[in-house]
């Protein structure tokens, strides 16, 4: 029942304030109600009225009524503090699941007045407090913990204020249509499994060569004995094979199938880790996911493309 009510309410808000990248607050979008302080003030007024009645004191009446009317007039002034504000979605910093995503929005003032004490936040985000007095617009960064990969929608942005008297709270929930891309949480793994020379069927991810030492891995049948790390064996570290990468063909394939036996999210997390590892070592790498192949390359753009592919694997991309 409660959930249905909430869903209904969501629909109603959606109709009233449809998502948009830029929203100017007007009477359709601003809500106002006495704040808790306002109710306390009302209680104080009641006590003052009692004093006026019991002492039959006309000026006490007058002051009580003045403050009560001030309350009424304050509704307009409180409302005006939000009215005419334009909120614009700037961008959302892509991030990894389990980290804080950074959202950038801009608040621009109306031409009519100064705006004070604007509290801006998403339900789960950090809160930002802004005044618009000297400047016409202000950029705001909000941080929010994201847990799941894919496009993250922070929900409706709450912008509220109690200026000027604190007796009333005025607010608006706006959907800025701002989505953050969330990459899988990178999961470190000691080694890249199934390392083999490039095979046509794509079983191996890494091309091994003789030029550049890369690392160790457990000896597997068929490894060249020249590459066995004998010194380590002598120290009792077990049979390990030295891995080399070839200068001639340094491209590495990060393949979905390398992590057979793991769950989807775990595979993606480990792939993500290796993407970052290769990227920081300036090694070319490519990605093979079921139904998607990204040719090996290097650079920021490539990395973002690969990470985005990981983030959205099995999920719907959102139309831009």
């Amino acid at each position: 029942m409660r959930q249905r009510g909430r869903a209904r309410f969501g629909q109603w808000v959606n109709r009233r304030i449809p998502p948009a990248r830029e929203i100017t607050l007007n009477q359709r979008r601003i809500f106002i109600f006495p704040s808790r302080v306002g109710f306390f003030f009302g209680l104080c007024l009641l006590v003052m009225l009692m004093v006026a009645i019991n002492f039959e004191n006309n000026l006490s009446y007058a002051l009580t009524f003045l403050l009560a009317t001030l309350f009424l007039v304050a509704t307009l002034h409180t409302y005006a503090n939000l009215s005419g504000l334009t909120i614009r979605a700037l961008r959302a910093q892509p991030t990894f699941a389990g980290q804080q995503s950074e959202f950038h929005i801009m608040v621009e003032r109306s031409k009519q007045r100064d705006h004070y004490g604007l509290h801006i936040k998403w339900p789960q985000s950090t809160e930002s407090l802004a005044n618009l007095t000297e400047d016409d617009r202000v950029n705001i960064q909000l941080h929010m913990l994201v847990t799941n990969r894919g496009w993250f929608n922070p929900g409706r942005l709450l912008i509220e204020s109690t200026y000027p008297l604190g007796l009333l709270r005025t607010w608006s929930w706006i959907d800025l249509d701002l989505h953050a891309l969330v990459y899988p949480r990178p999961l470190a793994s000691l080694e890249l499994p199934g390392l083999a020379t490039d095979t046509p069927d794509g079983a191996a991810a890494m091309v091994s060569g003789n030029d550049d030492f890369f690392g160790f891995r457990n000896y597997q049948k068929g490894d060249s004995l020249r590459q066995v790390h004998w010194k380590g064996l002598a120290k009792g570290q077990g049979m390990q094979t030295k891995q080399y990468t070839a200068y001639a063909d340094r491209s590495v394939w990060l393949d979905w199938d390398l992590f057979a036996g793991l769950g989807t999210e775990q595979r993606l997390s480990q792939l993500c880790y290796w993407v970052l590892a290769f990227d920081s070592q300036k090694e070319e790498y490519g990605l093979r996911l079921p139904g998607l192949v990204i040719e090996p390359a290097l650079g920021e753009k490539h990395r973002d493309r690969v990470l985005k592919a990981l983030a959205l694997f099995g999920k719907e991309d959102r139309p831009l």
Binding site: Y116, L129, T162, P164, L165
Partner: peptide, 10 residues
Amino acid sequence: ALVALHQPGE
């Protein structure tokens, strides 16, 4: 004073 209370950072 009540108004000033709601002007943070002033």
